[in-house]
Each structure stands twice: as C-alpha cells, then as structure tokens.
C-alpha cells in the first residue's frame, strides 16, 4: 500500500486529508508528521503542515501488491522504499527510531514528542524560532529530498487524468462532453464540463455533479498517488461555480450585518468545501472574522466582528 501525503493548515487537518484519501480510519493507518504548519503574523499560515500516511500493513504483502509495484518500475516503482527511508529520516530527527510497524500508543507518543520538541526549540530560540528552524539543515533536509525525489504530479497532469476519467464516464452515460479549464491559482484547477444532455450528470441540486467531483478526487488519489499536490475540481454544467457565487453574495450580506450590529452570526452547518468558500469570502471583507465550531456534518462557520476571532 502506498503512502499518501496530506497537507493542511494544521497537522490535524493534514492528517484528515491523508486519511480521507486513504479511505480508512485513523486506527487503521500509520501516520508520520513530515512538517508542522508554520504560523506567521496574525496566525496566518506561512507553511502548511504535511503528513504522510499509509494503510497500516496488517498482513504480509500479497502477490498482487508485488505485481503492481513492478508494473510501475522506472517511474514510481521505487517510491515505497524511498518513502520508508524518508519517514525514517523524519523519525530520526524527532528522536524516536522505532521500527516501521508501531503500535497506536507508540505512534501517539511520537507525535506528541514531535510537537513538544518543536515547541521547545521554538521557545529556546525565542521569537525567531521559525526562522532558525528554516536554517537548520537537518530539519529541512526531509522535505527537500521529497520534492526532489518523489515524482510530484503537476496540476495540469492531474487535470488531464480528471478529464480522461470524466470523458469515459460521460461515454458510459451515452453523452459526449467538452472541458473548460481554469487555473484558479497555483493550487487549484477548476474544470467546467459542458455538453448537451448533462441533466442526469448534474442531478437534483447538483447532487450527481458533486458525486462526480468526489469520484474524480478518488481517482486522482488512486492514479496520481502520493506526490499529488493541489486540487482539481470538476464542475459538471458549471453548477458548483454558480452555487459558490451565490454563497459569496450571501457572505457579503452577512459581513455587512455583522459590521453594522457588531454581533456575531452563526451560519447554518455546511460541508467543508462550502465553509472554505465562506472563510475565503470573509477574509476579503473588512471588520469581520470567522471561526468554525462543531463537528462534521454539523460543523458551521460563525462570523464574528473583527478582533474576536481568536
């Protein structure tokens, strides 16, 4: 089973992403913290946290597993071994050198050691903890070697895979489609899918369209593997884009209300992707901040007057 990598604004968020990609519960996964998030002024995230995870090997590798790896020789074939070495490096740096298979409690201990050690080093170095850590060759070695050695599939390459998948899917539906690709930023490509009879592929309230986006994510995880970065989103019929725009308009109204009344407003619970739209929209509004509360699927954003968001 390959390693997958998760990135996020916190170690927990990164872990969440990696586990989601693997499709397993935390108990069934082995998680290594590659690097923690670095936070700059005003708690802005300067560098996102990275973790690597794989499904905990429960049984010896199957024949099938061997065959798949050999099939990839030449490009990704050596990846798993490298991954182990790298995680070894990371482990070495954080002070624990136990074997590749660890128990849950060991893992938890290691994770907390990592945290406390980093905290210590930051404390001892005073306010320049982050900067000093950057100059520390040992700590930076792991992420650098990863970028150099591990094949990182570029976003356009991922977008090609996504389009190929959706083309095949549309064919299975008996439809033909065209694509309209937009690079939102360096971390996101959005692909609007156009076609004549997309009704079935959109579904009521865009339910099928978002299911297709979910499947694309899964396919990319499968086919692009651990070196995957950024996000390719598939928007069948452009419904997600229109929905997002409506959400942004709504956010502007809420922001105005919070500014005028000085009182916080709790929005209804939303899925993560919608919450992100809200956070982003509110970030560009003056005088308001956002916090999230509750647990999925009931997690929601609370819009607060500026200065109350920490």
């Amino acid at each position: 089973m390959e390693w997958v990598e998760g990135v996020g604004d916190s170690v927990d968020a990164a872990k969440e992403m990696a586990l989601e990609a693997l499709g397993v519960h935390e108990d069934d996964a082995e998680v290594d913290i590659v690097s923690e998030a670095k936070v700059g002024l005003f708690n802005r995230v300067k560098e996102r946290a990275r973790v690597r995870a794989r499904v905990r090997p429960a049984t010896p590798r199957t024949k099938d597993d061997h065959r798949r790896r050999r099939g990839r020789a030449g490009n990704g074939g050596v990846q798993p071994a490298k991954a182990k070495n790298r995680s070894g490096e990371v482990r070495g740096q954080t002070g624990t050198k136990d074997g590749a298979v660890r128990s849950d409690s060991q893992k938890a201990t290691r994770a907390s050691e990592t945290k406390s050690q980093k905290a210590n080093s930051a404390r001892s170095a005073g306010g320049h903890g982050n900067r000093n850590r950057n100059q520390n060759g040992g700590r930076e070695a792991a992420p650098k070697s990863r970028d150099d050695n591990m094949e990182t599939m570029t976003l356009p390459e991922q977008a090609d895979i996504a389009e190929a998948f959706v083309t095949g899917l549309a064919a299975a539906f008996g439809e033909s489609v065209t694509f309209d690709r937009t690079e939102v930023d360096e971390n996101e490509i959005r692909i609007v899918v156009n076609g004549e009879n997309l009704g079935r592929m959109i579904g009521r309230r865009g339910a099928t369209a978002s299911a297709i986006d979910e499947l694309v994510r899964t396919v990319l995880q499968r086919q692009a593997g651990g070196g995957r970065e950024g996000r390719v989103r598939i928007d069948v019929g452009g419904v997600a884009g229109r929905r997002e725009e409506a959400l942004r308009v709504f956010c502007r109204k809420v922001a105005e209300q919070v500014r005028e009344t000085g009182k916080e407003v709790a929005l209804e619970s939303m899925r993560g992707s919608d919450r992100k739209v809200v956070h982003d929209a509110m970030a560009s509004e003056e005088g308001v901040g956002t916090i999230s509360e509750g647990e999925d699927p009931n997690r929601r954003v609370v819009v607060v007057p500026a200065g109350n968001d920490d």
Binding site: A211, I212, E214
Partner: peptide
C-alpha cells in the same frame, strides 16, 4: 466513495 458511486449509478 460508496455513496458517490451510488449517486452516479442511480443517475
């Protein structure tokens, strides 16, 4: 993923 597959298949 299973839910997404069901949704798409039903569609």
């Amino acid at each position: 993923v299973a839910m997404a597959i069901r949704t798409v298949v039903r569609a």
